[in-house]
Nucleic acid binder design. Structure first.
Ligand SMILES: [Zn+2]
Ligand SMILES: [Zn+2]
Ligand SMILES: [Zn+2]
Ligand SMILES: [Zn+2]
Lengths: 146, 146
DNA sequence: TTATAATTGAGACAGAATCTCAATATTAAA
DNA sequence: TTTAATATTGAGATTCTGTCTCAATTATAA
C-alpha cells in the first residue's frame, strides 16, 4: 500500500524527499478526501517545516503521475482522493453529505474508450449526486428560503 | 430545454430575476464546461450589471437544486457543467486535454444505490483519467524533469 | 566525499470565493 | 393597481487559495 506512491515517484525519476514522504503518509493514513489545507496541516505532524507551496507542488505531481485525483465533493472544496479501486461516492447536492460505496461498473466502458481514443486509462471517477433522505424530507416542508 | 432551469427555480420557490435569467441563458447557450469567471463575463452580455457575488450565489443555488455540477477538468480550474444525460469526459492527467464522449452505463448502478441508501439520485459524474497519445509518447522519451 | 541538479521554504503576489449591508426588485395580498 | 413584506442584488472589503521567485538546502550518482 505505502509502496505504490513511493515507488511510482522513484520510477518516474523523482527524488524521494522528506517533505514528499510526509505528504504521502498523510494520503495513506486517511482513507478519505483531503483538501490541500488539510494535507498541509496533517503533514506538519510528520515534517514541521512543510510549506504550502510544496503541498501544492506534490499534489500536482502525484496527479500528473495519475496517482491522485482532484475532485469537488459536497461543500465546494477541492480535495484530492487517493483512489482505491472501485471506491466511489454518493453526494447530497443540498447538504453536502458524502456516502462511500465500493462497487463499480466502469471497467468495460473504460476499455472501449481506451481503444477508441488511444488513451491509456489510469483511473476513473464515478460520483452520483442527489438528495439524501433528510433533505428530501426538508424539501416537502418548505419551499423557498434557504 | 430552456424551461428546465427556470421551472425548477420557480417550483422550489425562488424568484425569477433578471440576473438569474442571464446566468441561465449562458448555461444553456454553452454546451461545455464553464468557470464562474466565464459565466460572469458572458452573463454581462445579457445583463451588464451582473455581479460576481450573484454568479457564485446562483451557481451554488442551481447546484443545491441538483441542476448543475461542479467539477475539476484538466488544468485545475473549477467549472460547472449543466449535465446532459450521458455526457462525460476523458481527461489527460498530464496535459489536461479533455475529450468528450456520450455514452454511459451508470444508470443501473444508480438505481441500486438509490434503493440501498434512500437517496433520490438526480445525476452523476463519470470521468476517466489517463494519458493521451501525445503524453504517452513523451513519457517514453524522458524520465525525471518536468 | 564531492559535484550536480532537483527540490525546498518563505514570503510576495494574483486570483478566486465569501461576506456585509444598504438599495432594489419580485411577489402576493389588498 | 398599489402596497407591504421580503428575497435578491451590486459594490467593495475581506479572506482564502493557489502560484511564483529565488536563495538555501538536500538527494543522488559518481
Ligand atoms: Zn469505478
Ligand atoms: Zn442532504
Ligand atoms: Zn470516499
Ligand atoms: Zn496529455
Amino acid at each position: 500500500m505505502a509502496k505504490r506512491l513511493v515507488d511510482s515517484l522513484r520510477e518516474a525519476g523523482y527524488r524521494l524527499t522528506a517533505p514528499r514522504l510526509a505528504i504521502i503518509k498523510v494520503l495513506e493514513a486517511e482513507t478519505g478526501h483531503l483538501s490541500p489545507a488539510e494535507v498541509l496541516e496533517k503533514g506538519r505532524a510528520f515534517y514541521p517545516a512543510l510549506s504550502r507551496a510544496t503541498v501544492y507542488r506534490t499534489l500536482d505531481l502525484l496527479t500528473k503521475l495519475g496517482l491522485l485525483r482532484p475532485i469537488y465533493l459536497g461543500e465546494g472544496n477541492l480535495c484530492f482522493i487517493y483512489p482505491r479501486e472501485g471506491h466511489h461516492h454518493l453526494i447530497c447536492s443540498k447538504c453536502g453529505m458524502v456516502v462511500d460505496f465500493d462497487e463499480c461498473i466502469a471497467a468495460p466502458l473504460g476499455q472501449a474508450l481506451s481503444e477508441r481514443f488511444g488513451f491509456r486509462i489510469e483511473s476513473h471517477l464515478l460520483e452520483f449526486y442527489g438528495l439524501c433522505e433528510n433533505c428530501q424530507k426538508d424539501e416537502q416542508k418548505q419551499a423557498g428560503g434557504d
